[in-house]
């Protein structure tokens, strides 16, 4: 069950992650199964959508752990690819980096056909997210005799790589980079086999930052609440649900400039939620399958892109060292 050096090494070689082979040296897998969460979509250890107070990797308080993850989400009209690496240091500090690629090819083609001009001009919107998290106090798993949760603070620096487009008159974001700040509290109610997390995030990010930061409607930090609950069915299997509030900062400048104030380019942002199953066949692997609902993202009805709520499937695989 535990990651013997041999299994770890053969896994490393077989998955051709040669550059990470050095990590075998600091291989540590001494946390209890599934108690470290999985990699959330921005790279931090957590649920699928929300960061938790747990520190990623299976390392304990005198060990370093790491994992890599790949996430794929497909909603009605968009796709999201995301991959990254998360390091946990001494169960105290977490560093993560993630790369997101948001596929808007569908929208691009419909707008180009409808307007006779390739206004969007790109198939994907990309961003890089660098995250840091510090456990302040508490033991989410072991402090089973108190209500005291594990509490962490964190920050996510996000850099959008499509500055020109997201700041253009179509989207009207105010900035291509931003920092989210959050405080997360996680508690495992061990005698109920139930885990609860709540995270309060201060953010300006539009659609996680994929549509930049701030907008014509609002360019201030707003607090957003994120909640997760998970029920542990057995050591390897958990089911749960998450709710993540998102800001609603954008109002496309094109609506006023070109369409007489009509809401033609509808960028109204809505809250997201998911229902997930997480499965950890071994300590080195965690697989997450979810139904996800992201609300409206970008709809341009007159050109046939009358999209509305984006719901679909979310798949994520995480490999730990």
């Amino acid at each position: 069950m535990q990651c013997s050096k041999k299994i770890c090494l053969s896994f490393l070689v077989s998955s051709a992650l040669a550059s990470t082979a050095v990590m075998a040296d600091m291989s540590a897998s001494n946390k209890l199964l599934l108690t470290g969460g999985v990699s959330q979509v921005e790279g931090a250890a957590g649920g699928g959508l929300t960061p938790w107070a747990v520190i990623g990797g299976y390392g304990t308080n005198d060990e370093i752990g790491a994992n890599v993850h790949y996430t794929y989400a497909k909603t009605g009209d968009y796709k999201l690819d995301s991959y990254g690496v998360t390091f946990g240091f001494y169960d105290r500090f977490e560093l993560s980096i993630a790369e997101q690629k948001f596929d808007i090819g569908n929208l691009r083609n419909k707008v180009a056909a409808g307007l006779g001009a390739d206004v969007i001009g790109r198939d994907t919107l990309d961003q890089t997210i660098i995250g840091a998290k510090l456990r302040v106090f508490g033991e989410a798993v072991l402090d089973a005799d108190t209500w005291m949760p594990q509490v962490s603070i964190g920050a996510q620096y996000k850099r959008n790589h499509d500055e020109k487009f997201i700041k253009s008159a179509v989207i009207g974001a105010k900035s291509a980079e931003g920092v989210d700040f959050y405080v997360a509290a996680t508690k495992l109610f061990l005698d109920q086999s139930f885990l609860l997390n709540s995270t309060l995030r201060l953010t300006k990010a539009n659609q996680f930052g994929l549509l930049g930061f701030g907008g014509a409607k609002d360019d201030n930090y707003t607090p957003q609440l994120e909640l997760s609950g998970a029920y542990l069915i057995n050591k390897k299997l958990a089911i749960g649900a998450e709710y993540r509030m998102k800001p609603n900062n954008l109002r496309s400048p094109a609506n006023a400039a070109l369409f007489g104030g009509q809401n033609v380019v509808n960028l109204k942002e809505e809250d997201a939620f998911d229902i997930f199953v997480a499965y950890a066949p071994t300590k080195n692997v965690a697989l997450t399958l979810a139904y996800v609902n992201l609300g409206n993202i970008a709809t341009v009805a007159p050109v046939g892109a009358n999209y509305g709520t984006q719901e679909g499937v979310y798949l994520s695989a995480q490999f730990g060292f």
């Binding site: 033991e139 089973a144 061990l190 005698d191 086999s193 057995n234 050591k235």
Partner: peptide, 15 residues
């Protein structure tokens, strides 16, 4: 599993 966790909840704080 639920009963395992009920006992573990008694043991875990002993860390």
């Amino acid at each position: 599993f639920r009963s395992q966790n009920k006992l573990l909840a008694k043991l875990a704080p002993m860390y």
